[in-house]
Design a protein around this nucleic acid. Structure first.
Length: 260
DNA sequence: ATGGTAGTGTTACTA
């Protein structure tokens, strides 16, 4: 099974690119983040025409997550148990969607950005990651052999080598010790980064501003974390850097994992 | 000189 994750930064703007990617890459299951639309606005027809089903969770022009699959999908779950809320009045955001495909539990995740270290959104990010860790621990406690893939835009660069210049990130989010510890807590719970060894030095995101892509000033923040049973099935992975090229590109590119 | 792009939906907000 070929599994991929992609922060598309609006599915309505990029539906053609996404369907083209599915057909070109032979991806069976694609987790999407930042669809930026409500369920009733999602362009499902283009996916159906290509032979894919869609499960989507979107509440507004912000966030939005989906799982697109040409294999049968079951056990769809909106948000993870204990997922923190945001805003006034406090409400759950459209940042997590679980679905089972061919026995693999896939979670499409859009981790809060954090904005700045002194912004309340930063604490929300840390709380959200802590909640995810607790939920994920529970899934493995229920079944230690479950193949679980936690995929998406984590908005964290796990190591200094995952950004083009760590000095440029002094005092910034995405690289702070607390964020990295929150991610490491998931590793301690049994979920490992299954793409790193297959994609050395490759980035998954380049800001639209300041010629970041032509200069290859990017970040590796789109990650696939696998449970032990999932990690044991990974036969390869790659990052589709070409998807950042040309007019109408998302600022993120697909991360693709092959499961045996 | 404090540098600017993209999307949604509206003159702001998010990333």
């Amino acid at each position: 099974m070929r599994l991929a994750t992609w922060n598309v930064n609006s599915i309505r703007t990029r539906v053609g690119r996404v369907v083209d990617f599915l057909e070109r890459s032979g991806t069976d299951v694609l987790a999407l983040q930042e669809t930026k639309c409500r369920d009733d606005q999602f362009p499902e027809e283009a996916f159906h025409a290509a032979g894919y089903d869609v499960v989507h969770h979107g509440l507004s022009q912000w966030n939005g997550v989906a799982v697109v699959s040409r294999l049968p999908v079951s056990d769809v779950e909106v948000g993870f148990p204990g997922m923190p809320t945001w805003g006034e009045p406090a409400a759950a955001e459209a940042r997590a969607l679980g679905a089972t495909v061919d026995g693999v539990r896939v979670w499409s995740l859009y981790v809060p950005n954090g904005r700045e270290l002194d912004n309340p959104h930063y604490q929300y990010k840390l709380d959200w990651l802590a909640g995810l860790r607790t939920a994920a621990e529970g899934w493995l406690a229920a079944d230690a052999d479950a193949p679980i893939a936690l995929v998406g835009d984590w908005n964290i660069a796990p190591r200094d080598e995952d950004v083009w210049d760590i000095a440029a990130f002094a005092g910034a989010t995405h690289v702070s010790p607390a964020e990295r510890e929150a991610l490491a807590a998931l590793t301690e719970a049994g979920f490992s980064d299954v793409t790193r060894e297959h994609t050395p030095g490759a980035y998954t995101y380049w800001d639209y501003q300041r010629l970041r892509f032509p200069r290859n000033e990017g970040m590796r923040i789109d990650l696939v974390l696998g449970s032990p049973a999932l990690a044991a099935r990974v036969s390869g992975a790659h990052i589709d850097r070409d998807e950042r090229k040309g007019k109408g590109a998302s600022d993120h590119v697909p991360v693709v994992v092959d499961l045996g």
